[in-house]
Design a protein around this nucleic acid. Sequence first.
DNA 1: CTCACACTTCGGGGCTGAGCGAAGCGTCCC
DNA 2: GGGACGCTTCGCTCAGCCCCGAAGTGTGAG
Lengths: 253, 253
Amino acid sequence: MVGVIGDGVVAGDADIAPVAALMGEPARAAVLMALLDGRALAASTLAAEAGVAASTLSAHLARLVDGGLVSVEASGRNRYFRITRPEVADTLEALARLAPCRPVRSLRQGTHAEAIRHARTCYDHLAGRLGVAVCDALVAAKVLGVEEDPGGRPDPVLGAGRSRRYVLTKSGRARLAELGVDVEATGRRPLTRYCLDWSEQRPHLAGALGASLLARFVELGWVTRGERRVVKVTDAGRKGLVAEMGVDPDAWA
Amino acid sequence: MVGVIGDGVVAGDADIAPVAALMGEPARAAVLMALLDGRALAASTLAAEAGVAASTLSAHLARLVDGGLVSVEASGRNRYFRITRPEVADTLEALARLAPCRPVRSLRQGTHAEAIRHARTCYDHLAGRLGVAVCDALVAAKVLGVEEDPGGRPDPVLGAGRSRRYVLTKSGRARLAELGVDVEATGRRPLTRYCLDWSEQRPHLAGALGASLLARFVELGWVTRGERRVVKVTDAGRKGLVAEMGVDPDAWA
DNA sequence: CTCACACTTCGGGGCTGAGCGAAGCGTCCC
DNA sequence: GGGACGCTTCGCTCAGCCCCGAAGTGTGAG
């Protein structure tokens, strides 16, 4: 009756295999991880990142675009690729949480590994120890409240499946506005999102607010975005984060 | 060969490719989806589910175990496989949320895709719009309460997702028994399980109770199981679900 | 003890797809 | 316009692994 060989997964069922296979090839995985900070990178940059020939990478990128994980934007003779949706980044982070860290092969790689655990960008918001510390500070200052996610009703798409969520308090909204954080800049995106950090195994703040927060930090010159998702905190940033944000300096330094 | 390894991917960064590749093969993906509800299934069951020979599946299972996604428990001459950690299920669900974005390739697939989104079985319980609607009705009628899950793993701060669960209330137990649902038929299986629906992006009821509920619906002739997990609601079922269960007819019709 | 069953291991066949270089097409710069 | 640059397409090779059936190991039932 059924007996269809090679068609084990039923059409219409959630067919995770194709998507997972896209992420399961080393070169493509490297591309996706490189794009995880939300920036758009040129094909040549990504080829160097993945360590394969341009022609090889071109094929990979075509498949990623076809699979809806990555979108293209042509600009002159360059084509810039970026991750299409936050859900893709979510999935990559979920996989990262599952994956063992690759062994460290050199001192340089070791220091970078340390740096990226210290402070990095995750798609478009802060992560690493700094991201967690900032998030903790926001909760401690009651800028954010943590509440249980009533995961049934209101949120049609995002937020479901997350057991807890952050809500921006009234006083928190005022406080962030005072700091110049664009609290209103949320499109269809949820303002806050509870995002588990793969290196710290603790939550940090994602969503539109997480993005606005990072943008403002950069604007203030508190942090600078370095190579490969690494984030550096400036002297002014160190002071500002402690004085204005109430971040515990020991928690991330 | 040392030089072949691209230094593009940073040591210490998470290497998602091997894990994603494990999930990216159709037979293994089918296995993982079958185990998604937390049950432990025998190898032969999984072979039928994946539609491959026992020997083929054995190799797949060995790789899944080796990769830490699945654990084995030998019992007599059977070996039962289950998903090791909630993080694995989280990742599978993240992938499933990404997967439905594929375009529908044929009309026939389209109608089947619609049917399966309407009402289907998720291995042994109801899912799709009907599954969500029934679950909503149970919560609204206070047959089920939603509470935070204290449980399971010794986690540093927060459990990695899945920390909410349904509990059967006292009155709910009586009400279901009245309907003829076998409330006691739970082996080692958790009575209820909070399961996010991939097509509806909202939770529905899994676990032993979800299974008993479906069994009773079938017994009552309210629903019939069709091909490929599609569930059809009979006329009697339509009436019964609305009258007895308090399901909102607009929510799933 | 013997058969039946569940699962694994082994050997071989077949196909997908990842890889590269060369060539083609379009864009930007001098 | 000519040339450099960025990217894609094409043709090809080769490795990996997915698959099966048959044989081997261990357990349970009669």
